[in-house]
Computed example of a mutant assay.
Amino acid sequence: MNQADVLFVFDVGGVLIELDPAARDAALVAGRKADAGHPDFTALPRGLMRDFRLGLVDEPAYLAALSAHFDVSTDTILAAEDAYIAGINADMVGFVRILKQRYRVVCLSNTQAIHWRRVSQSLLGPDLFHADYLSHVLHQEKPDPAIYRTLVAAEAAQDRRIIFIDDTGENIDAARDLGWTDTLLHVSPGDTIAAVADLLGLPDETAPEDEPATGTRH
């Protein structure tokens, strides 16, 4: 198959980036006054968090609301958000770099501005993907079919083979419902890399070729 006919779409959190909810919660506890007690994590303002993830609430308003909810400083909220991003999965990031030499590779991520700033600036770098499709920029998120359609239209991928990797089953199911038949539920780097090699009919997907990927970064 012509390499220009293949589009790779990667989720980020849980696939390329390791997440640590326990570290985030510990940072929030540590930032409270000694006599404040333990915060009630069952009463998280999930609507606010969703709206920030969709880019419907700006960062100062988000920080102020969470600061009031947990009775901590905005610096503590930022520290907690930072602690949630535990680091990169080096095997998967290296795999993306190899694929990018041969194929068009983009990301499709449910994320928010604070997390993405750290991920793109400090961990993955701004140019790991040919294009980034982000919930807080598009005001759409997986598994809503609209965000998949937005990506297909932007990439002119109606007739291309899309290989989609995500660690959440409902996101995979939504893609399949739209006809993305080459979808892989990410469980481990080894399994995902082997599955991609199998889809491409390759014995080993680890030796890059000196051939530029098609397309340009949006």
Results as ranks from 00 to 15, higher is better:
96 V>S: 14
126 P>S: 15
75 D>Q: 15
36 A>E: 13
118 R>W: 11
175 A>D: 00
60 P>Q: 02
32 R>D: 12
1 M>D: 07
46 R>I: 13
7 L>Y: 14
124 L>Y: 12
125 G>N: 13
11 D>L: 04
197 A>S: 14
167 D>S: 02
170 E>H: 05
205 E>Y: 09
62 Y>W: 04
137 V>W: 02
120 S>G: 12
100 K>S: 12
144 D>G: 06
114 I>A: 08
67 S>F: 01
102 R>G: 14
32 R>V: 08
151 L>A: 08
112 Q>G: 04
54 L>C: 01
11 D>S: 08
141 E>R: 11
118 R>N: 01
96 V>L: 06
186 H>P: 00
215 G>Y: 05
16 L>E: 09
151 L>N: 02
162 I>K: 04
187 V>A: 15
147 I>Y: 06
212 P>V: 07
65 A>I: 12
9 V>L: 14
124 L>N: 14
70 F>K: 06
97 R>H: 07
189 P>I: 04
56 L>T: 12
202 L>P: 12
215 G>T: 01
197 A>T: 03
100 K>M: 06
210 D>M: 07
143 P>K: 11
9 V>H: 05
58 D>T: 06
177 D>G: 08
77 I>Y: 01
122 S>C: 15
62 Y>Q: 03
100 K>Q: 04
80 A>S: 15
11 D>P: 04
10 F>M: 06
